[in-house]
Computed example of a mutant assay.
Amino acid sequence: MSHPVRPLLFVPRYWPGMGGAELHSRRLAQELALQVPIEVARCCDEEARPTDLAFAYAEPRCVRDDDMLVHTIAPANSWKGGIRLLAEASKRSRIARGVYGHLARRLARSSFQNIADGATVAHAIYNGFTPGAQALQALGKPFVWTPLAHTTKPTGTAWSSPQFRALYRKADALIAMTDFEREWLIGQGASPSRVHVCPMAPLFAEDVPEPQLFRENHALGEDPFILFLGRTAQYKGYGTVLEATPRIWEQHPTARFVFAGPVTSEASALFSQHQDPRILVTGPLTDADKKSALAACSLVCVPSTEESLGVVYLEGWSFEKPVIAADIPALQSVIESGKDGLLIEPSTLAVANAVAELLGRPSWAAELGKNGARKVERQYNWASIADAHLKIYQSVI
């Protein structure tokens, strides 16, 4: 006999925060809401503070997102002053970080208890704030965790730290983005029977893309342009693309470069050192503009060294664009190099050579993009992804 499924989905930084996990978890929640009652919890909805510290400054509230209630978990009023002091001290002190994590876990659990009564399963999608996932697991409800593992971090840190390994063992179900991530999680101590592979899918507005309007609005003319789409964090490789531009211009002097996504202060400083009209920094795009940029670009180049799936490559494929990505294990199970994209060493020279080759061989580039589009159609769609999550939830209730 099946049991009722009422998920509480916890995403530390949730929409309207801008980023892959934020936006994709919202779409997952929306798809799930078409079939079951679901509520969402978060501790951060902005970009100003690191996700792991944002809980200290959160204020409890509840808003409605379509048919879903979205709760902000927060420290009790009596603890706000103390935990904020610890949050600031944790930036400098390992001891303070430990105390902050312990207290945040305790306070987060208390906040969760105020909203989790009706939930039959608790599902955390990780994009920061480990104490939140630990607190959700400690509620005593069936616990599902999507760690979005960045497997290239040094052994014993981050996703292979003792805290994470404990959560892998305690979770009633783990969701991996790829077969590679599944095997990696098992290697970290997760039970093979509890690890499921269930990727995310591309995100698009319903608007019809307007590639020519995107070109006109950004004065791109008819020149080929390379699209970097994502947060300008160092590991994403935006700096490598930027440093490769002079080499690419040697062979393709009319090539333009569009960097679209949230811009960090570090990135702003680097962009200021590359003052060339062929480089355009747009900042975050609306859904419609992102769709139009993907339709208009010549190729997508994001040589990120830390990915669990890399949905940006699926988004490029959805518009039959060839993609360039870093040759890391997680992406080797997504991209077939030379068939639907290029996997390269994440270096300036390798990026320059790959971009120049695709621009110089447009027929081959188009073939890679078409192959990628067929892969997306076969393997990545939201309805089947929501159904897979519901089956996982049902299996642990």
Rank of each mutant, 00 (worst) to 15 (best):
S265M: 08
L185P: 11
A373F: 06
Q273Y: 01
A373S: 14
K291S: 15
R374F: 05
S384K: 14
Y393Q: 00
T155F: 03
D287I: 04
L32N: 12
P199L: 05
V323Y: 01
T240W: 05
L185H: 03
K375H: 06
F10S: 07
T72D: 00
R374P: 05
L53F: 11
Q379E: 15
A269T: 13
M200C: 11
E59P: 00
W317N: 12
A104L: 00
Q394E: 14
V351Y: 05
A352S: 14
G187L: 06
V334E: 11
A296Y: 02
S78M: 10
L32Y: 03
L28R: 03
D67A: 13
R6P: 08
E320P: 04
K141P: 03
W382N: 12
W317Y: 06
G360C: 08
H274N: 14
Q30E: 08
F55L: 02
S292A: 02
R194V: 02
Q188G: 01
K236E: 13
F225P: 10
R278Y: 03
R64F: 11
C198K: 12
R182L: 02
R374I: 10
P7C: 06
G187D: 04
F214L: 09
A373E: 10
G237S: 03
P253Y: 11
V334S: 11
I38S: 04
L242G: 04
P303H: 04
L280Y: 11
E306Y: 13
A176T: 07
C301A: 15
G81R: 05
L299F: 10
P277E: 08
